[in-house]
Simulated assay, not measured.
Amino acid sequence: MLNIAYAIFGAVFMLGMALFAFLKGGASERFGAGAYVFAWFASIILQESSGFRGLPAGLFLIDLAVLFVFIAISWRYRQSWPVWASGIQLITVMCHIMMLTKQPVLLGSLITVMNLNSYLIIGCIIVGTFYAWQERRAAEMAR
């Protein structure tokens, strides 16, 4: 029971971030949070169907797609949080490449890096949402 606590905490944190982004964020924050939650659900479904054995190439493709989404958001909206999220997601993609090419690195360390990166990306979306919310409030007060 105790080993599931981190998964429940992560799920609550992820869905809380998405709710905050959808309620208070701008278009880029909503798009980024939506893409990230969609990728999260897709990776859960993909891992469930593979029996959580090994690292399927589908997870690599999902993370690569999320990287391209964050790059497109940073290119389109010219904000700083998608640039940071893209850099962190690039580290995750590089971990996948190291796993797929069977580099002599402990697999557990790469998986740990990838899991910690997901929390950092959530943090980037939260920070971007907070600043978009505050900018909107300041614009409303200036009127």
Rank of each mutant, 00 (worst) to 15 (best):
L2M: 13
L2A: 14
N3D: 15
N3M: 12
I4N: 13
I4H: 13
G10P: 09
A11S: 15
F13G: 05
F13M: 11
F13W: 12
M14A: 15
M14E: 12
L15V: 13
G16C: 08
A21L: 10
A21V: 07
A21N: 06
F22N: 09
L23M: 12
K24Y: 11
K24W: 11
G25V: 02
A27Q: 13
S28W: 01
S28C: 14
R30Y: 06
R30T: 02
F31T: 14
F31P: 00
G32A: 14
G32R: 07
A33Y: 06
A35W: 05
V37M: 07
F38D: 02
A39P: 02
W40T: 15
W40M: 12
I45N: 02
L46V: 10
L46E: 11
Q47P: 00
Q47C: 08
E48Y: 10
E48N: 10
S49W: 10
S50L: 06
G51D: 08
G51W: 06
G51E: 05
G51I: 04
G51Y: 07
R53M: 06
R53Y: 05
R53T: 07
G54Q: 09
A57F: 11
A57N: 11
G58P: 04
G58K: 08
G58T: 06
L61W: 14
D63P: 02
A65L: 12
V66K: 01
V66R: 06
L67G: 01
F68K: 01
V69N: 04
F70N: 01
F70P: 02
F70E: 03
I71R: 05
S74E: 14
S74N: 12
W75Y: 14
W75V: 09
W75H: 12
R76W: 10
R76V: 03
R78S: 13
R78N: 06
S80Q: 03
S80C: 02
S80E: 04
P82C: 02
P82G: 04
W84L: 15
A85V: 03
G87L: 13
I88D: 04
Q89G: 01
Q89F: 03
I91K: 01
T92S: 15
V93N: 09
M94H: 05
C95N: 13
I97S: 08
M98R: 11
M98N: 07
M99W: 05
L100V: 02
T101I: 01
T101W: 09
K102C: 00
Q103C: 10
P104I: 05
V105Q: 08
L106H: 12
G108I: 02
L110H: 04
T112W: 00
V113L: 15
M114G: 07
M114P: 00
M114S: 13
N115A: 14
L116G: 14
N117Y: 00
Y119N: 09
L120T: 00
I121G: 03
I121A: 04
I121K: 04
I122C: 10
G123N: 03
G123E: 01
C124Q: 06
C124W: 01
C124F: 01
I125K: 04
V127S: 07
G128Q: 00
G128E: 03
G128M: 04
T129L: 05
T129N: 05
T129C: 02
Y131A: 00
A132Y: 00
W133Y: 14
Q134I: 09
R136Y: 06
R137V: 09
A138S: 11
A138W: 00
E140Q: 12
E140C: 04
R143L: 15
R143H: 11
